[in-house]
């Protein structure tokens, strides 16, 4: 019964039609391959626009996702990149690099369903090199 009732609870969808000027990809010259990897593997939770999976329509998965996305955006929102100070960009880049190096991101619970979000060793190397160069350019 409870499962039926909660289907009618509204949630706020994390969706946006436009890419803001402050986006990471707008501020930085990001090579197409990396752009694509970030979009597929990171942007669902780290931007203002989620490409929602089918199960997001069903409660309680929708709540679980909503919380997750909020948490992800609080931590890092690629759409707001230009609004971060250089100091914080530096910190964010450091975290991006170490999270990928240590296979902490993308989350296992995410790649379990989004197989296309899994980063290959080559993907990781390319992204880490790019982020490291970007970080060095800020220092």
């Amino acid at each position: 019964m409870a499962l039926i009732v909660i289907q009618f609870f509204p949630i706020t969808l994390n969706e946006s039609d436009t890419v803001p000027q402050s986006d990471f990809m707008v501020e930085n010259q990001v090579p197409a391959t990396i752009k694509n990897r970030l979009q597929v593997s990171c942007y669902d939770c780290h931007s203002n626009n989620t490409d929602y999976p089918w199960y997001s329509k069903i409660q309680p998965a929708a709540w679980y996702l909503e919380d997750h996305i909020q948490e992800g955006k609080d931590e890092l929102n690629f759409n707001e990149w230009a609004e971060y100070s250089d100091r914080r960009k530096n910190s964010k880049l450091r975290s991006i690099i170490s999270q990928i190096e240590e296979d902490k991101m993308p989350l296992d619970s995410y790649t379990l369903i989004h197989k296309d979000a899994i980063l290959s060793d080559e993907d990781k190397r390319v992204i880490i090199d790019y982020m490291t160069a970007l970080k060095d350019s800020l220092e």
Partner: peptide, 25 residues
């Protein structure tokens, strides 16, 4: 983030949440 058991499938975890929390907050 760390408190979430990442290895459990999304749906399974979500189902547990219904049983343990009656409201989102």
């Amino acid at each position: 983030m760390k408190t979430v058991k990442r290895t459990i499938g999304t749906m399974a975890l979500a189902a547990i949440m219904v049983l343990t929390v009656s409201c989102k907050d």
